[in-house]
Design a protein around this nucleic acid. Structure first.
Lengths: 152, 152
DNA sequence: ATTTAATTGAGATTGAATCTCAATTAATGA
DNA sequence: TCATTAATTGAGATTCAATCTCAATTAAAT
């Protein structure tokens, strides 16, 4: 677990060096915070966490660092149509898709090999080279169906 | 074709009446423009089209009318991660998914029944009641693969 | 220790989308 | 046809996420 993170951090460090980018305290802190974070956090989650700690990090730097991490594949940017982006730590996770409950906001992850293969096949048919797939199912989760109208 | 549109417009009119909303010239114009529009337009496409014509329609009104049309199911709102929404006329279209070329921006539509059924099955397994599915494949279209680096 | 190019942060800026509110107007019924 | 009323419009202000600017700072390499 902690070994895992150290490995990841050194992978990050190497990646930075490879591109002539510097390993700053801010980048280090952002990286390690992300590696410990829960799923699907947004930028403000980071901002406020740093705000509480002794040394704060500006939004600009956070955004810039996230861009790098997304480029390097450490982090995945996800968009659930909320008008802002969410992110997830990608390094220790297989690819997955999302079900989003429109009532409680809960996000469920699922993986389905057939779904994946279907998409690959479609890409072949269309002669399309995929770089990224998005599969999202919006609706009501099991709990919220049962409830008698929590929202409205 | 023109008959089709008249039907749609009267469906719209009825829907408005049902909710005590008024059929204004603006709404009528927005509706008919949309019914003739190409795929996947954005708000500014409408704004500029109206701007050129004698009677312009404010952004606020356009946004408000689009909300109504989306609610009523005449229009579908789609998000391709560009930082703004696109829309498509839904009335005369079966559901479909999208492939988005990251090079030329072209959007391809496809439908795959198996893909759809797979998702339904997953929803059953998770006891999830879906209201909306999003399947998007980002990548390079056939043409852009062939080209020797048009973008960068 | 010096040099240099990358980085940071504060604040300004952009751009989409929403909100406010006074003036206008569609729809209803007399 | 006209008056009444509640819905609608538009101009501009506002919000909010995200990006940009630029002077001051700092990591890294010699």
């Amino acid at each position: 677990m902690s070994i895992m993170k150290d490995q990841d951090l050194s992978t990050f460090t190497e990646a930075l060096r490879r591109e002539n980018l510097k390993l700053t305290p801010q980048r280090k802190k952002i990286f390690s915070t992300i590696a410990e974070s829960d799923e699907h956090w947004e930028v403000d989650d980071l901002v406020y966490r740093f705000w509480e700690s002794e040394d704060r990090i500006s939004r600009a730097t956070i955004y810039r660092t996230l861009d790098i991490l997304v480029d390097y594949g450490f982090v995945r940017k996800v968009d659930f149509g909320e008008g802002r982006s969410r992110y997830e730590y990608a390094a220790d996770k297989k690819y997955h898709d999302h079900m989003i409950c429109e009532e409680c906001g809960e996000i469920f992850e699922f993986t389905d090999e057939n779904l994946r293969k279907h998409q690959e096949r479609l890409c072949e048919i269309f002669d399309f080279t995929p770089s990224k797939h998005v599969v999202q199912i919006y609706g009501l989760c099991s709990e919220c169906q049962a409830e008698p109208d929590a929202g409205k």
